[in-house]
Amino acid sequence: MPSNNKKLTLMLGFSLVSLLASGSALAGLQAFQNNSSDNYSCGYKNDKGQTVVAAKYEGCGNFSEELARVSIIKPIMKDGYEDGIYLQGYINETGKLVIPIKYEAPLFDGVIIDYRDFHQGLLAVYKNGKYGYMNKSERLTIPYQYDTAGDFNDGLAVVSRNEKYGVIDKNGKTVVPFKFDGLDDYSEGLAKYRVGDWGDAAKFGFIDKSGKVAIQPKWDEAMEFSEGLAAVKVGGYETGKWGVIDKSGKQIVAPKYDRAYIEPMGDAVEVDGGRYVDGKLEVYNLNKAGAGAYMDYGSITRYILNRQGKIIEQKNFADWNEIEKVRHPEYYE
């Protein structure tokens, strides 16, 4: 149920790489994959490598608020054909199943499964095409009534109904009216909103927690705020340029970079990068020299910017795979 260009804990279908998440060090349990069978399965081991939860699930999530999602695919018949629905439950830090595996994770676009974790004591749950919220005692605290539902953050969640987005508090009270064409989750007190339908006509700005416009919708694309800054874009997909603004909307970096993130690869559903981490942001320019019939660039220059927008490192790469190997060496071991 993505509200805009951002996933809300979404995962792709049958790939165990996507379904198998690393466990929390705080929980002392880590998910592991059973490689001894043709059927994918996963469970959890403790920090001594001992199996605590047998490999009997088809998806094993991270621990969030002392609970970890576990999931199965339940076979069903639909329109005379074999199909399946994705069900999720939750284990505690001892590996005990404390919330039964009966809550549906809906499938979107045929490939995206909306798996969820608890946030601020509440979980977005789905039934008969609508979302509500329940607590850890399985009590439905906010009824099923929303078409989409985000996770709670700072006591607020972005939800939608009748193709308009608004914001509710943990009591289900509407605190920002349902008037936005698109609205992402809050990050550092601001939420990105969309004016207009998807496409070249759409513009993005930011609202505060009261729903007041903090930054006018003049950007053609934008990332959420991180460390007080946000990457924003002027222009279309192919020719637009990225820069950086602060929370007042002041331009920190003029739009001059081709990319501010790496497009999803393989089973990924979210862009890689586009946010400041430890005071640094990676941006990219596509070099046309050497471009061929099947590639619109010959090489890629990666720039690392500091919070003032100054380039502190610059390096050329042959392609995106080379960059990913540097960003995520653990995937290529």
Rank of each mutant, 00 (worst) to 15 (best):
P217D: 07
K218R: 02
K218I: 15
W219V: 07
M223N: 10
E224M: 11
E224D: 11
E224R: 15
E224F: 08
S226E: 04
S226V: 08
G228Q: 14
A230R: 08
V232I: 09
V234T: 09
G236M: 15
Y237Q: 14
Y237S: 15
T239N: 12
K241R: 06
K241T: 05
V244W: 07
V244R: 11
V244Y: 15
I245N: 10
D246R: 08
S248M: 09
S248L: 13
G249W: 14
G249K: 09
Q251F: 15
Q251P: 11
I252M: 04
V253A: 03
Y257R: 02
R259Y: 06
A260L: 09
I262L: 04
I262S: 01
I262K: 03
E263M: 09
M265G: 09
G266W: 09
A268S: 10
A268Y: 13
E270D: 07
E270K: 07
D272W: 14
D272M: 09
G274Y: 15
G274R: 05
G274K: 11
Y276S: 03
D278P: 12
L281D: 04
L281W: 13
E282G: 10
V283G: 02
Y284I: 06
Y284G: 04
N285T: 12
G290R: 00
G292N: 08
G292Q: 13
Y294G: 14
M295R: 15
D296A: 06
